[in-house]
Simulated assay, not measured.
Amino acid sequence: MKTAETGRIPHIVLISGSLRPGSTSDRIAGWCAEQCRERGATTRTFHGAEIDFPFYQPGLSEHHEALREFLRELGRADGVVLVSPTYHGTVSGLLKNALDYANDLGGPRPFLDGRAIGCVAVGAGTQGTVSTLGTLRTISHSLRGWPTPLGVVVPHANALISDTALAEPHHREKMIEMVSQVLFLSRAHTTADLVTV
């Protein structure tokens, strides 16, 4: 999906905030990545074990290879999809800590400036996932990103996710719409870059 204006293919980074191998959050991040690739984007998915970084310290990323890779991918991203499990009504500490390292992104696009950000909250009930989604959107704004108009909550997650796909049509449709918005806003941003250069 190159844009006519820039010739660039959007690059989307997807981040799962769960450490449990094969978690619902991991599977949703992988499913969304597949949807992005089917629509012509390139992707990089970080599962929970890959973002199990030390607590944020300014400058630590200069000496930590996994952190440098994470920040390189965020730096070149046109869009980001955040998938968090709901822990006590908010995002996982794992995901929050990883996003704190966006403080180390400098240059012309500090933090997640201008990136489209899709937000997905996963949990065992509606109240907690709605609260978590709101927190993901607040963090995205604070990092200067553009949360998509549609965020997605996935309550009763174990009943909704099969090994290969989103099993519940309503949530599948919402997730596809969110991914489409991430890609649309990513294209808009690459066009704006061309105009302002």
Rank of each mutant, 00 (worst) to 15 (best):
G79E: 01
G79K: 13
G79I: 07
V80Q: 01
V81S: 08
L82T: 01
V83Y: 07
V83T: 02
S84A: 09
S84M: 06
S84N: 09
Y87G: 10
H88M: 08
G89K: 07
T90I: 09
T90K: 14
S92Y: 06
L94Q: 04
L95I: 01
L95K: 07
K96N: 14
N97A: 08
N97V: 05
L99D: 14
Y101D: 15
Y101K: 03
Y101V: 11
A102G: 13
A102Q: 08
N103F: 14
N103K: 12
N103H: 15
N103I: 10
N103M: 11
N103Q: 13
D104A: 09
D104P: 14
D104M: 06
L105G: 00
G106C: 08
G106Y: 10
G107H: 07
R109E: 15
R109Y: 15
R109D: 15
P110N: 04
F111I: 10
L112K: 12
L112E: 12
D113N: 12
R115H: 01
R115C: 01
R115L: 05
A116T: 09
A116C: 04
I117W: 11
I117D: 12
V120L: 14
A121Q: 12
A121V: 08
V122D: 11
V122M: 01
G123F: 05
A124W: 05
G125F: 06
T126V: 12
T126M: 13
Q127G: 10
G128H: 06
T129E: 09
V130S: 01
V130A: 00
S131Y: 02
S131N: 15
T132L: 01
T132Q: 04
G134V: 04
G134T: 02
T135L: 10
T138N: 12
T138K: 05
I139Q: 03
I139N: 09
H141N: 14
H141F: 09
H141T: 03
L143S: 08
L143W: 04
R144I: 02
R144W: 09
G145F: 05
W146C: 06
W146E: 05
P147S: 04
P147K: 07
T148C: 07
P149S: 08
P149F: 04
V152Y: 01
V152M: 15
V152P: 09
V152C: 06
V153W: 08
V154I: 13
V154W: 06
V154E: 00
A157L: 06
A157M: 05
A157G: 07
A159L: 11
A159C: 08
S162G: 11
S162F: 01
D163S: 11
L166D: 07
L166G: 02
A167Y: 03
E168A: 12
E168N: 12
E168G: 13
E168S: 05
P169R: 00
P169D: 06
P169V: 08
P169I: 01
H170D: 15
H170V: 09
H170R: 14
H171N: 13
R172V: 02
R172Y: 04
E173I: 02
E173Q: 10
M175G: 11
M175S: 11
I176C: 14
E177I: 03
E177T: 15
M178A: 06
M178C: 06
M178D: 10
M178R: 02
V179F: 02
V179E: 08
